[in-house]
């Protein structure tokens, strides 16, 4: 049970930063509360008494998104359901709808924020691989002598391990900035103990852009979750695919080499198998999902998750 002395709903970023800076030890920031409330239950943290909860979702500056120079700045209040309802986000971040549809359920997605998912830093967070594949950076904001200061950190570096990030006391994550991948095909692979409403054991995001004839990989982005303490970007695999002719043999070869990226100690052999299948299926599905030239890849047929 989560018990708090006070619950604040600041209406401006400055007010939030001030409250957060002054908050007694043990206080917490809240976005969707979908991690923090289940955390304070029997078997996890149990009963937790907290001085203050500071809810940042009513700050206008943190709502919505904006686009600039091929980058999209997702305000910290952006929730996973947005990737299934907002056409612009769906077409510019083509891996996100597939991540979202496998993420919790419709109701939790209305609350669960991308930022909360990243700051919570679970090694099996579904949001991390697609954000990493989109070259995501997290924006951290603090007050310095009364002035609002911002810094940005690549998400791949931001998450240091389970529950550990580079966020500093007094900082609030205010946005996540990602590449626009308009015209790419996107996909998301996930396996857990059941199919629906489940936390991943492992997951994988893929983004692919083939040339206009659909025969060559122009750009490839691959990232894994759940196979180590930190998010993994498969740079080596990406390099080996970029500029190459698309063949099933190449995809298979690269997929197999990705098995070595598994760092987890538990169920290692299983995770290696999963990663090989995920990279292959991720690339194939992303190719099939690429708009306009998608028809070229119909021959890959149906693929199955591991």
């Amino acid at each position: 049970m989560l018990i708090c002395e006070s619950y604040h709903v600041p209406k401006t970023l400055e007010e939030a930063l001030r409250l957060w800076g002054d908050a007694p030890d043990g206080s917490r920031l809240v976005s969707g509360a979908t991690d923090i409330l289940p955390w304070a239950r029997e078997g996890r943290a149990g009963d937790v008494e907290i001085p203050a909860l500071i809810d940042v979702t009513k700050i206008p500056e943190l709502k919505g998104y904006s686009c600039d120079k091929g980058r999209i700045r997702l305000g910290a209040a952006t929730v996973y359901q947005d990737f299934l309802t907002d056409r612009t986000l769906m077409s510019n971040l083509p891996c996100m709808p597939y991540c979202a549809i496998w993420f919790a359920d419709d109701q939790i997605r209305e609350q669960a924020t991308v930022v909360g998912n990243l700051v919570n830093a679970s090694p099996v967070a579904d949001g991390t691989p697609p954000v990493v594949a989109l070259n995501g950076e997290i924006e951290l904001t603090r007050l310095e002598e009364g002035d609002v200061k911002r810094r940005t950190v690549p998400v791949v570096d931001f998450i240091e391990g389970p529950g550990r990030t580079l966020i500093q006391p007094g900082e609030i994550a205010t946005a996540v900035t990602v590449d626009s991948a308009y015209g790419y095909g996107g996909s998301f692979q996930k396996v857990g103990q059941r199919r629906s409403l489940v936390i991943s054991v492992a997951c994988c995001a893929a983004l692919v852009r083939a040339d206009s004839t659909g025969t060559m990989f122009e750009d490839v982005r691959l990232a894994l979750g759940g196979v180590g303490p930190r998010p993994i970007r498969l740079r080596d695999a990406e390099r080996r695919l970029k500029g190459e002719r698309i063949t099933q043999e190449l995809i298979q070869r690269v997929a197999e080499s990705a098995a070595d990226s598994v760092g987890s100690r538990s169920r290692k052999e299983y995770r290696r198998d999963v990663v090989v299948n995920f990279v292959r299926a991720g690339l194939e599905e992303a190719l099939a999902n690429q708009p306009e030239i998608g028809a070229k890849f119909k021959n890959f047929g149906e693929t199955e998750n591991a």
């Binding site: 709903v9 979908t34 409330l37 809810d55 109701q107 939790i108």
Partner: peptide
């Protein structure tokens, strides 16, 4: 939404 995951104050 799931009201067990929403603080009332929200």
């Amino acid at each position: 939404v799931k009201s067990c995951l929403m603080p009332a104050a929200k």
